[in-house]
Structures are given as C-alpha cells and as structure tokens.
Write a protein that binds this DNA or RNA. Structure first.
Length: 418
RNA sequence: GUGGAUGUAGCUCAGUGGUAGAGCCCCGGAUUGUGGCUCCGGUGGUCGUGGGUUCGAUCCCCAUCAUCCACCCCA
C-alpha cells in the first residue's frame, strides 16, 4: 500500500480534473459506493474460480460474523447499488465512479495492493451505440491527456453469455483431448480460464492451439451483427483498433463486446483501461435482465504513463503565485492582515504567507523554493509608508515599491498577463 | 501464489567483525533589508525488524516485514 505525497497528489488532481470534466461532457453522473461489501457479492459476480476471488481478496469477518470484503473492482458494487435504489427500474443509466480497489497480489511497478480506478458503467442500452460511446469517451481522454499516440485499442466479441458458455465447454472438451500437450499453466487454466489458454506463447502447444475451435465461429448471430456494427461506428469515428480474437477478460461476467487499451511504455503492466459488456450480471445478482457495458482504468498506471512521457504540465503541479515575506517579527502582524485582505480581494490568487521566522536570507530562499513568481517584501520602511516591495523572482525586472492600496489591482493585472 | 534483487541520514548511495561516511536537502554565516551561483561552518542515523554466532554484529547465520523486477494475473 502506498502513501500519496504532496508532489504526487498534484499530478492526481490534474488527472482527476480532466476525468471529471470529461464525464460531464458525455452525460455521465458520479456514483459513490462503500469500499466494503458482502463477500458473496464479489464471489457471485466476478466468478468463484477467478484469481481475484480465489486468492486476491481482502476478506474478513465483521462483528456479526458476516463475511465482508474490500472491493477488488467497482462493477459489482455499482450493480448492487443501482439495483438496491431502483436506478435500473425501467430506465437507463450512465454512471461513473472513482476510488480505491484492493487486491492481494505481489506488488510491482504499475500493480499495487491498494490501487485506484476510474470506471464507467451504463445500464439499459442494448445496442452497439453505447459500446462505441464509452470507447469514444476513453479515446477522448487519451487525446486530452496527450496519450493517443501511446495507446492501442484492442477489441473482441465473446458472444452472448450462452454462446460464450457453450464455446467454453467445447473448448474445454478439445483441450481435455490434448491434455498431454498442455503445460502446467494451461492445466490450471483449464478450470480457471480456459479461453486464456489460447493466448499461450508456448511453442510446444502452438500446433494444438491452431487446431482449437475458434471463438469467432461460435458467435451467435446477434453478437456477430452487434460486433460488426460497433466496428463500423469506430471506423466512422476515426478510431483505430485491432481486432484481437485472443482478447479474453479475466472476469466471468463479460460477454459480447470486450476491449482493452494497452501501452508498451509500462513494462509488463501494459493494460491501462479495459472493459466490455456484462449483459447477464444484473439478472445474475437478482435483478431484471439488463444490458450493461462499462470499463475501468487504472489511475496509478495512467499517471505513471503521463510521468514517463512527461505529459503533465508544470503549472498543473501546484505551488503558489505570490510569497509574502514579513522581514522581521515587527512586521508579522501587518503581513498577516495584508495577506488576508489580498485573499479576500483576489479569490484566484494563490498566496503563501511566510511563517516560522528565520533570517531574512532564509525567508528569501523559501520564497524562491515556493515556486512563486512574485515575492512581496514587507519591512519597517514599507510598513511606515503603507507600501510594499514587489520583487520579480522569475523575470529580469527591477523590484518596485508601491502603495499597499494599489496592490490588489497590480496583482490582478500580473495574474491576468501570465 | 512462484523466482530473483535490495533495505545504512529527509533523498541518492558509499562503507567496515572494533564508537558510522559523501553528495544533495535543511539551518547559520561570508553579504545590518534581498532568493538563484560560489565559499565556510553546523543539525541530522534504533545501519528495516526479531533472534542467533561472537569478547564485540550495520557487516556473518536464521527468521520476518517492506520495496523493486520478472512470472502469473490484471487496472
């Protein structure tokens, strides 16, 4: 688990602000659910035999003996909340969420036990238009962040839940026949995620895999048509993609459209955003059949990517505009009241008042370190004359003495021209 | 869950079986009221934690925790 220190949190705020604005532009409303839920919710939705449920959940008994779990992902909670509060009753929803998720895995770069996701979930839309809509939303986010050139969209269709289940059975039967060829990983996946065996890089298994039944041949007609329409929409929108028949999501509830945005800039943690349809999940959790599509992106990975590519502008990284220095103890009080007056007058001004004493030299050092563009110096002379010294810390420009009464107007002008 | 590496000052890292070092940062001074550059001085360490071996362990051994990298999995 990681602490997020001030230098980092500025980057997060930059990212979060982009996301928040984008969601509003696409008509998505935020939902906030608890980070802890009944364990059964995740077991039933994600799948009993997935890695997440089998060995990665933070699960504990509460005082009543109920089994609770820190959420490993956001979709299940979102469905639960939407059902519980009637949001799915004869209506559609476009929701987004943001927050911490928990999985007990071995941490490494881009993978943490507490990590954060931004997710989008939609309910009640059956057609490929909403699939395209959420993919376009994510594509626009990359564009806004300057990431478009660094991520690739992969898409696939798993078919309807029924078709997918039937294909899975066919595939398992095929693999059972070739059990002697399967390596250790694949034998394990036979029960956990047989579709993923197709993705194996093992050369020994390559020939056997070539002969395996293909998912595309087992798609139901409706899913095939849905997928074709989605591709046409992405084409029309000018979004490049790669159809990856081996793209299989690890969570059981996915069906039909699945997609993934990946990057090669983050080592082995290349997936930066992933999602798809989960039309059967609401019903599975006790609601009425409701089509659904969503995705989640990993904030840590995206910020890591932004940092790696130096895509976070300096002026997004906090700091202040003005550093106000009382030159000695005798001017502290009037500096304090002056600071308050300016903050009241100029709400957009980021002004830091020097606190904590120290020599004048160290006060100036701190003014410099603060990143402020301007320093205001208040000494005995200035105080007596009701004036202030304005020093330009970043420009080749002589410092000026001006009346305190004019200060608000002067600073307003400086902020506007910056 | 598997394999490997690393834990020494706030940070980046040297180092030795015998009382612990550098650079950066921070503080003070050179410069009575002017930051950045330079020079001088100073503060700062349960040597990850717990055991063991030893007269003596930061160093050797064992365990444990954390982090990093890869596998696996995934965001």
């Amino acid at each position: 688990m990681n602490d997020l220190l001030p230098s980092e949190s500025a980057r997060w705020q930059f990212f979060e602000a982009k996301v928040r604005a984008l969601m509003a532009r696409y008509g998505f409303d935020e939902i906030r659910t608890p980070i802890v839920e009944q364990t059964a919710l995740f077991a039933r939705s994600i799948g009993e035999v997935t890695d997440i449920v089998e060995k990665e959940m933070y699960t504990f008994d509460d005082r009543n003996g109920d089994s609770l779990t820190l959420r490993p992902e956001g979709t299940a909670s979102c469905v639960r909340a939407a059902m519980e509060h009637g949001l799915l009753h004869n209506q559609t929803q476009r929701l987004w969420y943001q927050g911490p998720m928990f999985r007990h895995e071995r941490p490494q770069k881009g993978r943490y036990r507490q990590f954060h996701q931004v997710g989008v979930e939609t309910y009640g839309f059956d057609g490929p238009d909403i699939d395209a809509e959420v993919i376009l939303l994510s594509a626009r986010l990359w564009q806004e962040l300057g990431l478009s050139e660094h991520v690739t969209l992969e898409i696939n269709s798993l078919g309807s839940s029924e078709a997918r289940a039937a294909y899975r059975d066919t595939l398992v039967a095929y693999f059972e026949q070739h059990r002697d060829v399967l390596d250790e990983d694949s034998l394990r996946r036979l029960t956990t995620n047989p579709l993923r065996i197709l993705d194996s890089k093992s050369e020994a298994m390559a020939k056997m895999l070539d002969g395996a039944p293909r998912l595309m041949d087992h798609l139901d007609d409706a899913s095939r048509e849905h997928f074709e329409q989605l591709k046409a929409m992405l084409d029309a929108a000018g979004i490049p993609y790669v159809v990856n028949p081996r793209l299989v999501r690890g969570l059981d509830y996915y069906c039909r459209t699945v997609f993934e945005w990946t990057t090669t800039a983050l080592g082995s943690q290349g997936t930066v955003c992933a999602g798809g349809r989960y039309d059967g999940l609401v019903e599975q959790l006790g609601g009425k059949p409701t089509p659904a599509v969503g995705f989640a992106m990993g904030i840590e990975r995206l910020i890591l990517l932004l940092e790696t590519l130096a895509l976070i502008p300096d002026d997004a990284l906090g700091g202040c505009d003005v550093y106000l220095v009382p030159m000695d103890a005798g001017t502290t009080v009037s500096a304090l009241t002056l600071a308050e007056r300016l903050r009241g007058e100029l709400p957009e001004l980021r002004l830091q008042l020097h606190c904590g004493g120290g020599s004048f030299k160290s006060r100036m050092k701190k003014a410099d370190k603060s990143g402020a563009r301007y320093a205001l110096l208040l000494g005995e002379d200035e105080q007596q004359a009701q004036e202030i010294t304005l020093k330009f810390l970043r420009d080749e420009r002589e410092q000026e003495r001006l009346a305190q009464a004019e200060l608000g107007a002067t600073l307003r002008q400086l902020l506007a021209t910056r």
